[in-house]
């Protein structure tokens, strides 16, 4: 499957109508950017700035929007696979690890053992018949990651998937994600509020504003791969970035040290 066009986001306005308890608010306004095929693009912004909303629109879960999101299309003309790794693993607790991945595959891919191969690559080979309730938080996210890659997506959306994991487990998962992405290249939109994570993972970082969200800074991460989490190179890149765009990113830098940061 040759993917010929990347992701193009052009959202004029995304508004949530209030419902008595919550006042109406505009989550996104004039948000435009393109992601070339195969690029690993990180979206960085304060909590509540509409990042999840954007992913939901791209995933086709939310159609109530003024604007359009063009997802990578292939030469067959059919809508290519979009896959989504949510903030929580969202596994089906009544299905084994194997079935949790197989359930999203078409019968052909299931029969040739594509799901099991991916799970083995994620070091879950000995947990194929376990139920998710028996797994650790890191293991559950590896299952979710295997599921996300299993459908051979043309676009992979990730919504702060490694939040609330401790540092070593999170770093290991980030490495697994990069390994798999390099083995199976695809366009990636990775949402985070952690600047170090974005620098470690991304080819490019888009900084979003407080809501209504728009792009305030577009930064290419020109560090050579493989990168090392917490390495001097990443640290230097971060310092340079904050020096150059300190004013613009001030609110965000605070958010990276305080994940509980919220919008008024």
């Amino acid at each position: 499957m040759a993917v010929t066009a990347g992701l193009s986001v052009d959202i004029r306005r995304k508004r949530f109508a209030g419902d008595g308890r919550t006042p109406p608010h505009t989550a996104i306004e004039n948000l435009q950017f393109d992601v070339p095929v195969g690029q690993f693009c990180c979206l960085l912004g304060p909590s509540g700035c509409g990042k999840t909303t954007l992913l939901n629109i791209a995933a086709g879960l939310d159609h109530d929007v003024d604007g359009s999101v063009g997802i990578p299309s292939d030469d067959t003309g059919s809508r290519p696979a979009v896959s989504y790794m949510f903030q929580t693993p969202r596994l089906l607790p009544w299905m084994s690890v194997r079935d949790n991945v197989d359930i999203v595959l078409d019968p052909g891919a299931r029969a040739e053992g594509h799901g099991v191969r991916l799970l083995e690559r994620m070091e879950l080979g000995s947990y194929l018949d376990a139920y998710p309730t028996r797994l650790s938080g890191g293991q559950r996210r590896r299952v979710a990651l295997a599921r996300a890659f299993a459908i051979r997506p043309a676009l992979l959306l990730l919504d702060e998937p490694f939040v609330s994991l401790d540092q070593p487990v999170g770093n290991r998962l980030r490495e697994i994600l990069l390994d798999q992405w390099q083995a199976q290249p695809t366009t990636v939109l990775f949402v985070t509020h952690d600047l170090d994570e974005a620098i470690f993972l991304g080819d490019r970082i888009l900084f979003l504003s407080q809501p209504p969200s728009r792009v305030v800074q577009d930064v290419a991460v020109d560090l050579a791969r493989p990168r090392t989490p917490g390495s001097p190179a990443i640290h230097a890149f971060r310092t340079g970035l904050l020096d150059r765009h300190g004013g613009l990113l001030a609110g965000l830098a605070g958010a990276t040290t305080d994940p509980g940061h919220s919008t008024p």
């Binding site: 995933a59 086709g60 879960l61 896959s83 989504y84 949510f86 929580t88 089906l92």
Partner: peptide, 10 residues
């Protein structure tokens, strides 16, 4: 949220 998983993965 689990039903959304089914929708995303079609």
């Amino acid at each position: 949220e689990l039903l959304d998983v089914a929708r995303v993965f079609r």
